[in-house]
Design a protein around this nucleic acid. Structure first.
Lengths: 227, 227
DNA sequence: TGGAAATTCTGTGGTACCATACTCTCGGTT
DNA sequence: AACCGAGAGTATGGTACCACAGAATTTCCA
């Protein structure tokens, strides 16, 4: 497991959650593998309670399953679940860009543009992790512009892990280019308040996350659950 | 606080969460009031840990706020939040009925019809609590028919409390009639696979939860946060 | 040698207690 | 009389330990 230092003002529980999420996304905690509260707690230099609470939260998002008195397992990738989370994102984010386009008053899209510039930079100076982070920030800012931050937190907090884990399995050089272009087109549509175009761009954009299923399945068959 | 017996097979944490939710919805734990882990734990005959974990979960859903080293508070009703949860439901459930209508193959709506019959029964023999429960079950079954149960759990688990708390403040005799009729019309549209009609019915249906804001605000001004 | 019972081991669920930080009160000083 | 600071009180955050259940291993008997 890859462990980074604890941040200032971060509670033990938040720290444990962050480290666990990072390692699940990076596949250092492999799908299907068992994890032990004791082992993690000694690795992080904490007691079991913060670990336990982090695992409870992950189990609510169906990332981890806790078998009482037996142990906890990093769940295999259930593609039906990934698809459901994509469905939820698609539906919700489409509605969000619609709200943005139809909102009255001025619209400050400078944060989106700034984010886009950084994406273009990390495309030329390749850094997939940064791109992933910027991608998530981009979508977060959309929710913010629509005044729907609570929706973002209610869902995305628990859901992005499913997404990011799959994404980190795919070779992403080619796709990243398309994603950045999608974002660019989306900003254009939003600034023109073209609601219909923006929604259709969002649908196309989020569908990109789907295509790799077959390739990933063949590359990491042991990480997928049946069905 | 109103306390019922602990169910079989229910962990202490689940028990604490259930009791807390029930009391928040029924307003026995008043919006704005402070709660103490110690007090609750002695009332429920548990130690602090399960209570603490239940409060952490409620704080994730913005029902409770935990002030470290100070205490925990049942949050006032933030109508912007209620509206956001309505937005989320609206967007998602509209998409869900669309999926149902456009699904291929046969469609087993017997559970919906059965649920509707019970709703009609409890309308004639008034029982608001039962109606609320049936209402939630009805919507849950819609997600089930669309094969989107995970979406249901991701959101609704944390969100319905916001809804139910507001709903329990409104006099609901008149509204219940309309709601049951809405459900009836929705079943009809679904069985005819009339996607457009079903979505528009769902929009009208969920908008009913909005109308009472002014009345409730006047009746319980101290339960609302500003803005 | 094979198999079942008993025991040990290991895991989470929950309890009791300590650490730490914030609040409020009370007393002394100016 | 007003204000500041020390200390008690009380809240959650975290630790250490016990309770209990399930799995694996060992032991004992046929």
């Amino acid at each position: 497991m890859h462990i980074t230092a604890r941040l200032a003002k971060e509670t033990a529980r938040e720290y444990a959650l962050r480290i666990l999420k990072d390692n699940i996304i990076s596949l250092d905690l492999a799908p299907g593998s068992m994890v032990s509260e004791n082992e993690i707690s000694s690795q992080l230099g904490l007691s079991r309670t913060p670990i336990r609470e982090a695992l409870i939260e992950l189990s609510r998002a169906n990332i981890v399953e806790i078998y009482p008195q037996k142990g906890s397992r990093i769940l295999l990738i259930d593609y039906a679940l990934v698809e459901e989370s994509r469905f939820l994102r698609l539906v919700l984010e489409s509605a969000v860009v619609k709200v943005i386009c139809e909102r009255e008053g001025t619209l400050d899209i400078s944060l989106l543009e700034e984010n886009l510039k950084l994406q273009e930079f990390y495309l030329e100076n390749p850094n997939p992790d940064k791109l992933l982070e910027l991608d998530n920030q981009f979508h977060c800012e959309l929710f913010n512009l629509a005044n729907k931050m609570q929706c973002y937190h209610w869902m995305m907090d628990g859901m992005t892990v499913h997404f990011d884990r799959v994404r980190s399995m795919s070779l992403n050089t080619i796709k990243d280019i398309k994603i950045v272009n999608d974002h660019k087109a989306l900003i254009a549509a939003i600034s023109e308040r073209n609601s219909q175009e923006a929604v259709s761009l969002m649908e196309k954009h989020l569908s990109r996350y789907k295509i790799d299923e077959q390739a990933i399945r063949e590359k990491y068959p042991q990480y997928f659950s049946e069905v």
